[in-house]
Deep mutational scan, measured.
Amino acid sequence: DLSALRVEEVQNVINAMQKILECPICLELIKEPVSTKCDHIFCKFCMLKLLNQKKGPSQCPLCKNDITKRSLQESTRFSQLVEELLKIICAFQLDTGLEYANSYNFAKKENNSPEHLKDEVSIIQSMGYRNRAKRLLQSEPENPSLQETSLSVQLSNLGTVRTLRTKQRIQPQRTSVYIELGSDSSEDTVNKATYCSVGDQELLQITPQGTRDEISLDSAKKAACEFSETDVTNTEHHQPSNNDLNTTEKRAAERHPEKYQGSSVSNLHVEPCGTNTHASSLQHENSSLLLTKDRMNVEKAEF
């Protein structure tokens, strides 16, 4: 173990290094160091905050020279020094078990990766560091076993998940096959086929009936047209017969005018059967003409 005197000496050296690497504005270890034209180094955030307070150039807090945003430059070497100082402080805390008085939040800088452990060898070769390295080497064999167990647990979990997924996939297939086998029997399929065939026959029977009705309507229309044509021909046949009657009536009127007047009046009210309204109107006109002729003949006879 380190003596108290040596611990104090190391602590004083760390404090001196820390004062050199402090920012003059925030009085902390410089984060993202930036250098000016006057070779003074500050935190990048502190300098941008200072420049944004005034429009135009501002003055350096140490030498009062003008500073602009374009004049600022990043210093990589200074950032490396800060990183190495942080590593020294971490090693000091691990070796002594004491917390550094002016320690900052170094938890963000710590890294437990194997590459980081290899890099620590180049920091300080001390008894405390050696003991700590031995402890780490002793704890390393235990870690692979834990990793193997965790991997086995994960693989077993994956296997159970896969088996569950396969079961879920197989179950719908089985149910679907069961439904297909038990849903419709052979008799049901035959009945469905016969039902479809009967429906098709009914459709075939319905369509000819409609065509037959249309044919019957067409035949009825044709018969009505033929009947009207026969009526017209009958009226045409009746007209010459009426003319013959008129000639006979004229002759009778010349011989017996008194008797014919009474008979002509009675004939006005008689309509021949089986004739249309057109034929009756023609008869009325003929009878009126005959009456006028008879009157003329009677007057001539009187004179």
Results as ranks from 00 to 15, higher is better:
S58A: 13
T230P: 04
V270A: 08
S263C: 10
R162I: 00
K221Q: 10
S197C: 00
K192E: 10
N143K: 14
L117I: 06
S156T: 08
D119Y: 02
Q53K: 03
Y129F: 05
L81H: 01
I30S: 14
K49I: 05
F92L: 00
T247N: 04
C63S: 01
R135I: 03
G97S: 03
T68I: 04
C43S: 00
S152R: 10
Y260F: 03
N267Y: 09
S150R: 13
Q73R: 08
M127T: 14
S266A: 10
K222N: 10
I20T: 11
D1N: 05
S280N: 12
S71R: 01
K64E: 04
A91D: 02
N12K: 08
E74G: 05
S150N: 13
R169Q: 11
S139T: 11
C196W: 04
N105T: 06
L62F: 00
L217M: 14
T76P: 15
I30L: 08
I67K: 02
F106I: 04
T292A: 08
Q125R: 07
T36I: 00
I25F: 00
G274C: 12
Y260S: 15
T160A: 11
L137P: 03
E140A: 03
K55Q: 03
S266L: 06
S75R: 05
S139R: 11
S280G: 13
V298I: 14
P208H: 11
K44R: 06
Q147E: 14
S185Y: 07
E299V: 05
E28K: 00
H238Y: 08
L51R: 01
Q18K: 03
V82I: 06
K37Q: 10
G56W: 03
L146M: 10
Q261K: 09
L137Q: 14
T189I: 09
I123L: 12
L155F: 12
Q138K: 08
P24T: 00
N243I: 07
P144H: 08
L48P: 04
V265L: 11
D213N: 01
E84K: 04
D231Y: 01
L51V: 13
P33S: 06
H269Y: 09
N143T: 09
A279T: 12
Q239K: 12
T235N: 08
R295G: 09
L282F: 15
K300N: 08
M127I: 10
F78V: 15
L29W: 08
E254G: 02
L48Q: 14
I215T: 11
S264F: 00
V190L: 03
N157S: 10
L27R: 01
P141L: 07
D188N: 14
F106S: 13
T76A: 08
N157D: 09
P144T: 05
N234Y: 11
Q138E: 10
I41R: 03
P141H: 09
F78C: 13
V298L: 08
C225W: 15
A224T: 14
H256Y: 14
N102K: 07
D218A: 07
K31R: 13
S126G: 09
S216N: 06
A193E: 14
Y129D: 06
L5R: 09
I124T: 08
I25V: 05
L164R: 10
S3T: 13
E28A: 01
L268F: 06
S139N: 13
V177F: 02
C90Y: 14
S197I: 11
S58L: 00
P257Q: 06
I25T: 00
S185F: 03
Y260H: 12
V13A: 10
T36R: 00
S75I: 15
K55T: 08
G262A: 12
R169W: 07
C225Y: 15
H40N: 01
S103R: 08
S281L: 01
E249K: 02
K134Q: 15
D39H: 09
I89M: 11
A223G: 09
Q93E: 13
K192R: 04
A252V: 06
K300R: 10
K109Q: 08
V34G: 02
N234H: 03
E226V: 13
L282S: 07
G56R: 04
N111D: 14
N131I: 03
Q173R: 14
L155I: 02
S288R: 11
R135S: 07
S176P: 14
R165S: 01
N15T: 09
C23Y: 00
S219T: 15
M47V: 07
E229V: 05
S264P: 01
V13I: 03
E140G: 12
C90F: 12
H278D: 15
N131S: 01
K54E: 00
E214Q: 07
I206M: 04
C38R: 00
T275I: 02
V121I: 12
Q168P: 01
N143D: 04
L137R: 13
N15D: 14
F78Y: 14
S113F: 04
T76S: 10
T160P: 10
K134N: 15
I123N: 13
Y260D: 15
E142V: 06
R70K: 04
K44T: 01
N105S: 06
N131H: 15
I30N: 07
L268S: 15
E254D: 01
R130K: 11
T175M: 07
C26F: 00
V265A: 05
E214G: 14
K300E: 10
R251C: 14
K109N: 04
I41V: 06
Q283H: 12
E22K: 02
S79I: 07
E229K: 09
A220P: 02
E187V: 08
L164P: 03
V82A: 01
V161M: 13
F303S: 14
S139G: 13
S197R: 02
Q147K: 15
C38F: 00
R212S: 15
L136V: 13
L268W: 10
E148K: 09
Y100S: 09
D294Y: 07
S145Y: 02
Q239H: 05
L48V: 14
R70M: 03
D184N: 07
L5V: 07
S3F: 11
C90S: 12
T277N: 04
N65T: 11
L217S: 14
L158F: 08
T248P: 15
G210V: 10
E32D: 08
H116N: 11
E271G: 02
S156Y: 02
R169G: 13
L151V: 07
E9D: 03
Q18P: 01
N234K: 06
E202D: 07
T233K: 09
G199A: 09
Q125H: 11
S186F: 11
L164V: 12
S75N: 15
I30M: 00
M17R: 00
K19E: 02
L245M: 12
F45Y: 10
Q261H: 09
